[in-house]
Design a protein around this nucleic acid. Sequence first.
DNA 1: ATAGTTGCAAAAGCTTTGCAGTATG
DNA 2: CATACTGCAAAGCTTTTGCAACTAT
Lengths: 159, 159
Amino acid sequence: MEIIDTSNTKDAEAIEIFKEFLENNGFRKTPERFAILSEIYHRNDHFDAEALYVHMKKSDYHVSRATVYNTLDILSQCNLIAKHHFDGHVTRYEKTYGVPAHDHMICTKCGKITEFRDERIEAVRKDVAANSDMEVTGHALIVYGECKDDCTTGFSPAH
Amino acid sequence: MEIIDTSNTKDAEAIEIFKEFLENNGFRKTPERFAILSEIYHRNDHFDAEALYVHMKKSDYHVSRATVYNTLDILSQCNLIAKHHFDGHVTRYEKTYGVPAHDHMICTKCGKITEFRDERIEAVRKDVAANSDMEVTGHALIVYGECKDDCTTGFSPAH
DNA sequence: ATAGTTGCAAAAGCTTTGCAGTATG
DNA sequence: CATACTGCAAAGCTTTTGCAACTAT
């Protein structure tokens, strides 16, 4: 088990992948889509659609909520972002290109997220695939807990 | 790794635990709450609030949605049920008393859920606790995949 | 030109909340 | 008999959808 840091800004490569995906699947290459991708690849947190929408509204490139949701969906399809359901309220996303596969540990008091990698998870996936009638396509492991130091400044979901 | 079967009906014990919890925490012992607990402990699936509401409406003991949500919350507090966020749409629940700890594998095409146990997960939890500044209180591992046989009869979430 | 996209607002779906009436302790 | 609980409906929030205007190809 190792705690990892996933921050990076490989947006140049991500843009290329996105272009290809759009072309190969008959989608249009609109400036809104690239503006959203760029915004996402400059963040290092686990954001939700609303946070992305609000941040882009303030920035130089305004896009509508509908476009945000639409683009998040396309980016999920081509695996440039991952979708998370840490709780029942909102779907959260994070960039994935250039980021090692990892899982999440989250503090239920303050929302702080720590990312880690553990090769045993991969072994479990293989075993599950072998012992069931299913082809495994993905997984999500979320470890819930509470910070030992006082993290009493309230719950800030995006980390 | 082993696939497990979690069906059972230990409702007698669960009722006792619920009674104690309600008493110790200043909650009232209303018939609605026990009717809901009983309904839950006679199911062996991963249900959502609406399914429970609809089923109880048809049965001999009608309760309101508000009461369903309220009671599900209390039952979570005393660990008689577990909450799951398999996808971003609805929160699902399952009974936990008398059920071995386990994780879930879910087919993204038909919604079929298979339950399994793997002792390596417990090891990962311990490692995460040791390598972070967090006290681990729980976890959720969901393995996503697709049935190999054709499960084309559509998505039925409750399994 | 012509279809895919955007933006806006309305609608949908799950969950929470307010309040008047009810029943538990 | 005081106050927590229930039921109902309304409100709240996130996400989806319908449609006219727009634009990438």
